[in-house]
Design a protein around this nucleic acid. Sequence first.
DNA 1: ATGGCTATCCATGTTTACCAGCTGGTAAA
Length: 582
Amino acid sequence: MKNAAIAQVFQDMADLLELKEENPFKIRAYQRAAHTIDSLPVELEQVMKEGKLREITGIGEAIANKITDLLTTGHLESYEKLRSEFPENILSLMAIRGVGPKTATRLYKELDVSSVDDLEKAIVEGQVAALYRLGEKTAENILRHIQGLRRKDQRVTLGEALPVVEEIIADLGKIRGVRNLTPAGSVRRFKETIGDIDIMGTADDPESVIQAFVHLPQVEEVLGKGATKASVVVGNGVQVDLRMVEHDSFGSLLQYFTGSKDHNIALRDRASRQGLSLSEYGITVTKTGEIERFATEEGFYERLGLQYIPPELREGRNEIEEAEKGTLPKLIEASDIKGDFHVHTDWSDGHDSIEAMANAARSRDYQFLAITDHSVGRGIAHGLSVERLRQQIAEIKALDRKLSNFRLFTGIEVDIRADGTLDYPDEVLSELDIVVAAIHSAMGQDSDTMTKRIIRALDNPYVHVLSHPTCRLLGIREPIDVDIEEVFRAAVRTNTALEINAMPDRLDLKDIHVLRARELGVRLLIGTDAHSAGNLDLMRFGVGVARRGWCQAEHILNTSAFGEVESLLKQGKGQAWMTTSR
DNA sequence: ATGGCTATCCATGTTTACCAGCTGGTAAA
């Protein structure tokens, strides 16, 4: 049994115990165990063999015994007993936003609702609204969330797909005679969600690579296998296709399978007017029927009279016209990044200390890091009271003095409350180098209320940045209802920067927002929202969004040297913050 | 249920918002 499956058992048990109104601390212990197991870097099976289960924080006698049962027998009696006390699908009710344990219990006790379908029917028939202490609005709210769950498509996030791809490429890359192993498709274009994963490569002996591919340990099912192509399903249910070709036609193959569909249609259309036809095998001169092969994509685009188009721009927007004129932007690269503006520490809900975060930043050759823990309103995240914030400021400044050629900025991720006021008074905010404002509550407001709320925050003279502006969580939560264009205009007017949040579940702003914001002259920066030192590596996802939004290095504040950032911050939201060349 | 501590013990995330009924339960973050 894998860690993820065991973690799920404990999460389910926690939910069921909540339904039973068990001791809340017991529930929390199960939740904490589930979370710890889920993010454990080694398999529990291994830990158990070494007899070290109890050494994991949060795993004591009882949970260690349960883990041992699960690993040795595949079953857990107490879990099965607990499940038998409730209807089969009760947990699926609690998975709906707006339905907690109390409501779920009442729904099945009073209305005999035991599935999402039942619940939807009961709402439509007005039975839910008729319950005491529920009503029209609550019922409507639940219905909206059910529909949201249904809409959620089966795609996985780039954050889930990319590590899978990299692992496979690392494994297959060890085989003798293999070259050019590259992801294609939406992974290569760095799209926020991925359907299937496509991997391309060339090899002296393609068949041996295909053979190795279908026998990789992460493969759960082989869907098909031929001499040059195979399809498999890996652990998280994602389909991975591998295609191997001869070295000399790799360029056209990669181009063809990178897409996007819209890009390739436009490219073909243009080629046919030049008397050429395009395929995965090469470029054919229509008149003679002669096919030209391309080992590289660069050669392929050059033959068409185009500047090389980076994969992130191949969305059929305007890239072919610009490539024809030779005016494509020189996109920002990961190596341009000199610092991070949004990280958490163990002062709020982060995992690592201020010093560990600073060291992690320095080891990535960054020049600066802003510490932005949660404000007091994020109670669950252990948000900082004014008093603790001031202690933290002192500690950050003391550490900063010890670090040469590096700047640690004091900061906060301050909550924007429902009415647009902030979680701290202005005089507290004025003590910080950087103030990042964000919405974490009352996300259901209507567009007008929400837009005014955000603009009120942007108007605050101490707010430098609006973080994750649309609050979406991919596949989990829809974005808030907001007039984003109005927010962009207010950001320009008030000299407030907007964040590209690099967390793979957020990627917020998203690519097309970045494109539009940049057109309007909004200042942008990338924040990883790191909750651990290792999370600083999420920066590349933010860079990917910036690239998809056609950003050059000078469009993103993270590419500025620390001295430059410091003087910008010192001048507050005055002209310099927005109107320097950067 | 865990972990600190050696106790038939004790502490363990908190604030805000929403909604139904006009204060307080419930859920979310």
